[in-house]
Write a protein that binds this DNA or RNA. Structure first.
Length: 555
RNA sequence: GGCCCGUUGGUCAAGCGGUUAAGACAUCGCCCUCUCACGGCGAAAACAUGGGUUCGAUUCCCGUACGGGUCACCA
């Protein structure tokens, strides 16, 4: 072994002993004993801010890949906290809490109560030693070297490259310290100069590397020639290095990450090889996009411009977690929707998820479609489920409504039951925040006449019809009897109950049964649209119905 | 600018050399013993573009345009 190099490595890695070898790490983190075909995936967020829909999208993909058709696959959470400057307090807890709220659970990794699993620690800053061990190996093998360039020098090089129309970066002739004399490097470090550890690339960009991605298929890039940074001046690794070391020693089988990493894939390929590690499979997922109203073009979802981008949006509006997952599944895997229509009651977890069925171009987030998906989810819930969903939301977001709902639970459940159950349930709301305005007429303090009575009915007729109806209404009538009474009213006042005849020749009649029932509907609910009037009136109770009809007759 | 990825109706998407080019959301019509919702039926609506290869290209190859990503001691 080159003594000088050894001296240099001792200077750079004073925290390591001779026992700290890559082989010792291989023993510490042995290959996992999993069944054939089982997969290990990881979500690796950096704790730098609030979660957005793209994070959830990625997490769901990871989770499904690990857990579909395998009972011992592993989905783990690793915290990429290598950038101290951008770290946000409490972000880790928030990530775990939010994902949990969407039903996404980890088998292993960082958690609120410390680490779970034997491949940790799972927070990168606590893994400094492991990175150093691998980095030292690279240094001693001549695949890494210290670089003393200042920020200013790098900036200047960048500018010079721009002027010379050459590629940006630290490579070839621009890599000033690549071939620096070891003695000189030792002297500089002893002198206390700041440095980073760079990878020494042997790549030749005139050659191509072929690569297979689980989603994108065959890819081909020029070989890497960048001497990118492995360890920053504080000894903490960059993403690139941490990715290779962690995914190797955590024994990740499938790296699922956004396609923004595609461009640095050649870096990673060369690094995996230089480390002597076997590469995992890669799945580079498309981004969730959004139509920009201003420009009319697709663009990445942005937290600032798109409220539906942050996960908080779904909680504030009160979308069931299940709806969000269901919609993301339709974006994530082609074929999910068709599978769903054939398997209405199945859990999304039963869907045969395949990485190869993931879309390879960015899917646009479509709020209208999402709302439809959510309406379907809510439509097939029981009244009890809807009730607890609304209450949970209202407790956080609308205290007054919460008190009203909980003041008479069975009353609330009764009106939430209308049109529910059976094969063709109503699809009235997409989220809990829409419920209140929909059911407001069930509560006297929210009830107002919001819409006009039908114009086809004269004031005189309206008063007479209402007064008449108040005297014949019987809350024990079934739907048929109820309807017969409306028909009788029609006949009495010259409105037809024969809709066909009315449509064919509307001028032959004063109006139709629609007008008559709408007179009653507006009197009772304050609006021209409502669920089935007969059921609705039963829930309201005879007293309230009569009271409202009488006061409307007095208008 | 270099490199990479992508482009099927308004949106999400099937399709893997020969199809009347599925389906879903949205839109519009019609039907369904009251309105709305649900449901049913139906309509309109697409292979970015130019060259090849081929008996035949939405499908394969090349160019162009457009969109996206990336080029940090951020991930």
């Amino acid at each position: 072994m080159d003594n000088k190099l050894l001296q240099l490595s001792n200077l750079i890695f004073p925290d390591l002993t001779e026992q700290d070898t890559v082989e010792s790490l291989e023993q510490l983190f042995p290959e996992r004993c999993l069944k054939e075909g089982s997969k290990v995936t990881r979500m690796a967020p950096s704790p730098t801010g609030s979660m957005h829909i793209g994070n959830l999208y990625g997490a769901l993909a990871d989770e499904r890949i690990a857990h579909t058709q395998s009972d011992d696959g592993v989905f783990l959470l690793r915290i990429e906290d290598t950038d101290e400057k951008r770290e946000v307090e409490g972000a880790v807890e928030k990530i775990i809490k939010y994902l949990g709220a969407f039903g996404i659970e980890f088998d292993e990794g960082a958690s609120q109560d410390g680490d779970i699993g034997s491949y940790g620690p799972y927070r990168q800053r606590q893994r400094a030693k492991y990175y150093h061990i691998v980095a030292r190996k690279l240094l001693l093998e001549g695949r890494a070297y210290p670089c003393f360039c200042s920020e200013e020098e790098l900036k200047q090089a960048h500018q010079a490259q721009e002027e010379a129309k050459e590629n940006f970066g630290y490579y070839g002739k621009w890599a000033k310290h690549r071939d620096m004399d070891v003695d000189k490097a030792i002297a500089k470090i002893q002198n206390g100069e700041s440095f980073v550890l760079r990878f020494k690339s042997m790549g030749d960009p005139s050659k191509k590397v072929d690569f297979k991605d689980q989603i994108k298929g065959k890819l081909s890039f020029p070989e890497n020639d960048q001497d990118f940074v492995l360890l920053k001046s504080d000894g903490i690794p960059t993403y690139h290095f941490a990715h290779v070391v962690d995914d190797h020693f955590m024994r990740t089988t499938d790296v699922v990450r956004g396609e923004e990493w595609l461009s640095t894939l050649p870096w990673h390929v060369e690094l995996w090889r230089a480390c002597g590690f076997k590469m995992p499979r890669f799945c580079h997922t498309a981004q969730v996009m959004k139509l920009d109203e201003q420009t009319g073009t697709k663009r990445k979802m942005s937290k600032r411009k798109d409220p539906e981008c942050t996960l908080g949006f779904y909680f504030e509006k009160g979308y069931p977690a299940k709806s969000v997952i269901e919609y993301l599944m339709t974006l994530l895997n082609s074929g999910f929707e068709q599978w769903r229509s054939a398997n209405k009651d199945a859990s999304y977890k039963d869907f045969p998820f395949k990485a190869s069925n993931m879309g390879n171009s960015g899917a646009m987030f479509d709020l209208a479609k999402f709302n439809d998906v959510s309406k379907n989810i809510i439509a097939f819930m029981t009244a009890d489920e809807v009730y607890s969903g609304v209450c949970e939301w209202a407790e956080e977001n609308d205290k007054e409504f919460y008190r009203m709902l909980t003041a008479d639970e069975s009353y609330a459940k009764a009106f939430l039951s209308i049109g529910r159950g059976g094969k063709k349930p109503r699809k009235d709301f997409a989220c809990w925040s829409e419920v209140k305005s929909f059911v407001s007429y069930y509560y006297d303090n929210l009830f107002t006449i919001e819409e006009a009575f039908p114009e086809t009915v004269s004031l005189q007729d309206r008063k007479a019809i209402l007064a008449d109806y108040a005297s014949i209404y019987d809350e024990n009538d079934d739907n048929n009897a109820w309807f017969e009474k409306i028909k009788e009213l029609c006949d009495k006042y010259g409105y037809t109950s024969d809709m066909k005849a009315y449509k064919e020749n509307p001028d032959a009649f004063k109006g139709s049964i629609t007008d008559v029932s709408n007179v009653i509907r507006v009197a009772v609910t304050g609006r021209t649209n409502s669920p089935d009037l007969c059921s609705l009136m039963k829930v309201l109770g005879k007293d309230k119905v009569i009271e409202r009809i009488n006061s409307a007759a007095a208008l």
